[in-house]
Structures are given as C-alpha cells and as structure tokens.
C-alpha cells in the first residue's frame, strides 16, 4: 500500500531524513519509535505533503496505492486516502467542527465520484462517530480545536479519522500529553477502526501506546534513518534499555 524508498528530506537546508525505507501493507500496524529529533515527525509531515520540507526527488520514491505520492499536493493525498493525525492540531476560530468535517468529507467523496452528503445525512454520520470515540455531541458546533484541552484535540483527530475513513492513517505522537483515560479512549477508537484494508503508522516516543494498540512491526528511527526493525518485542526492549542503547550502537558504527 505504501512503499517508501530512500526518502531524503530537508528543511531550511538541513537534511532530516537521510534515506528512509519502509513498506506498509493493507491491514498492518507499524510503530515508528525513536529519540527526540530523530525525524519521526518530519517523516509524518513529509508523507502528508507539508511544503516546508524539501524532498530530494532525485533519490526519493514513495508510492501510495500505486500512485507516485511525492507528485501529489497535500489535498490530493488526503483524497486518495492518506490521513495524518497531527501532533499539534491547529485551532480554527469561527469554523465549527461539523462544518469543517462536512467540507472535508465532501471534498474526498467528490474526488471519488460519490455524491456529497447534505447537512442532515452528515449530521447523522457525525453523531454516530462521536459516540464511537466518546466525544460529547456538543463538540460538533464548537470551533475546531478552539479552546480544547490537549486530550480533546487528540480525541478530535481520532474523530476526523473515524469520519474520513482513510486507507492509511499516520498518527503523529497522538499519545503525547494524554492522561491514561484519554489514552484508553484514543486507543480504543483506533482499534475499532482497524480493518483488513486499512493500515496505520504510529509515530511515538513511548512504548505505552503500544500496550493499547498492538503493532505488527516496530521500527526505530535514529538520525534520519531506520536503524532497527522488529516485532512488538523490540518496543519492549526499548522500554527496558532506553534509547541510549540504540544511540551507542549506532554512534559506534555498528551497522543497522
């Protein structure tokens, strides 16, 4: 579904991603872990099409559902079925959650030749999804993320995920700043959305999210490259030994 080959990206002339290789198939859940500054969030943003990053198009190849992803602007990636849950969701004063999500869903439906949903049909769908991710129905009419707590913002990202039903969801540190209840709600939401034709990439610093959402694969990102890949046990090992273990090994020149 997603094939990343030798992905290089930089910001303001500084190279952050230095040759990422990753293959994600339908139904799989991949966790990308790594110390601060390793490039995890950059990878998520680059895949979503953030233009602040400059991708080295000579070297890098990324295909998503058979299409050249790097060729597409952000909105077309989203319409194709790629979703990024932001680490820091932005506040949009004056635009209600339901208006925002309805516009978004209809853009995606339109691009697939589906009929747009009117306000009434959409409202029914939204109510159902809000129940699923345990969000108070009152949030529908509130401005997007405006004045939301950190946990509410993250939950709102999961609500968007539930409404937009992407093929690939990238969750960028969705667990950071969550208390244990919010973490449970977010994880349960994600688990309900797991399906054989939907894949997840979880970007996280901590192992604890993976207690709730059990990944099929764990990758460790360090200095812009994936230096270790394994199953769930790799995350547990990281929890036990900390990132210093990886850093020492890498910085000493031990091949990945």
């Amino acid at each position: 579904m997603l094939e990343i080959c030798d992905l290089h990206a930089s910001i303001a002339g500084k190279e952050i991603l230095k040759g990422i290789n990753l293959s994600v198939k339908e139904g799989e859940v991949h966790a990308i872990m790594g110390p601060n500054g390793s490039g995890k969030s950059t990878l998520a943003q680059v895949l979503a099409g953030h233009e602040a990053y400059e991708v080295d198009l000579e070297k890098s190849r990324v295909t998503f559902l058979g299409q050249d992803l790097l060729d597409l602007p952000a909105e077309e990636r989203a319409r194709l079925g790629l979703f990024l849950a932001f680490q820091y969701p932005v506040e949009i004063p004056g635009i209600s959650n339901s208006y925002f999500l309805q516009a978004s869903l209809n853009e995606i439906r339109k691009s697939r030749g589906l009929e747009e949903l009117d306000a009434m049909d959409f409202d029914g769908l939204l109510q159902e999804k809000m129940k699923m991710v345990e969000i108070d129905p009152g949030f529908a009419s509130r401005a997007v993320n405006a004045g939301f707590s950190g946990g509410e913002k993250k939950r709102n990202e999961i609500l968007q995920l539930a409404v937009l039903e992407p093929r690939l969801a990238i969750l960028d540190e969705t667990d950071s700043g969550l208390d244990i209840d919010a973490l449970r709600v977010v994880s349960e939401g994600v688990n309900r959305l797991r399906s054989p034709n939907r894949a997840f990439v979880l970007v996280t610093h901590y192992q604890r999210l993976l207690d709730y959402i059990v990944p099929d694969f764990v990758h460790v990102l360090y200095k812009g490259r994936i230096v270790k890949s394994g199953g769930r046990e790799l995350a547990l090992e990281l929890e036990e030994k900390g990132y210093d273990w990886i850093k020492t090994e890498e910085d000493a020149g031990v091949p990945a």
Partner: peptide, 10 residues
Amino acid sequence: FYFRSRGVDE
C-alpha cells in the same frame, strides 16, 4: 495546511 491535509484545497 491543516485544511489541505483533510482534502480541502487552498
């Protein structure tokens, strides 16, 4: 960008 990442053009 947040809008665009949700399928809404600029």
